[in-house]
Amino acid sequence: MAENSKQTMNDTYETTGIPLLKDSKLSVRNVDVFYGDKQAIFDVNLDIGKNQVISMIGPSGCGKSTFLRCLNRMNDTIDICNVTGEIKLEDQNIYDRSIDVVELRARVGMVFQKPNPFPKSIYENVAYGARIHGLTDNKLELDELVESSLKRCGLWKEVKERLLEPATGLSGGQQQRLCIARAIAVNPEVILMDEPCSALDPIATATVEELIHELSQNFTICIVTHSMQQAARVSQRTAYFHLGKLIEVNDTSVVFTNPKHQLTEEYITGRIG
């Protein structure tokens, strides 16, 4: 296997499949990411289509989470992390000096691996984004926003009686859906999800997957996942990362039924990872 990867892992490489699209929401060009001296992402080129779900798969440490965090500049919080290249959100380079990360993150929301609701009430969690961005004019509008966001996540019926209770009292699956509700309450254009179901049981996972499917009507979603079944269930396109390189991108059905690249095939058949 090591020999195989050596053969295919040259310094210049080409992504197999269809990485570029005509009409894209996010377009990533020549992105390299360094942690200090160590390079974590090598020359990634990828387009992410509007109102599509794209899933990123690959073995642990392949850089898929790092790549995801480039898309809303969460990597800025790590001092030694350095991103080069260009990532455009609708023709605007998000690494441009004129871009404020606050504005960017209001447009590109994020859901994390572990549910991380604020230690405040359910209501405050959902209302937080609207509050800091000043999205509503009065309490009534805010109430409506909280209600509609929770409804879209299918959480309203479960929590409407206890909006003022601590969010940390919810179950893991409910907490994760609350985090999604919190993210969509600011009406972002793109939602990034970093292994959103890895801390959930199968039933909660199914609920969240259903939710992702519904949200894809209105949002562009990038999801990092370890579960290939999940990638197959929720996404239209799939990108396979290996040791910091984007090996193959294609329609999900093609990637899973007919992978073009040897590494992709080895991974999805369970020989790597």
Binding site: T77, R105, M110, F112, Y128, H133, C179
Partner: peptide
């Protein structure tokens, strides 16, 4: 203070 809280806030676009 758990770093996940900081990430959650920053991810929401808090300064």
């Amino acid at each position: 203070v758990p770093p996940s809280i900081r990430e959650a806030a920053l991810g929401m676009g808090a300064s």
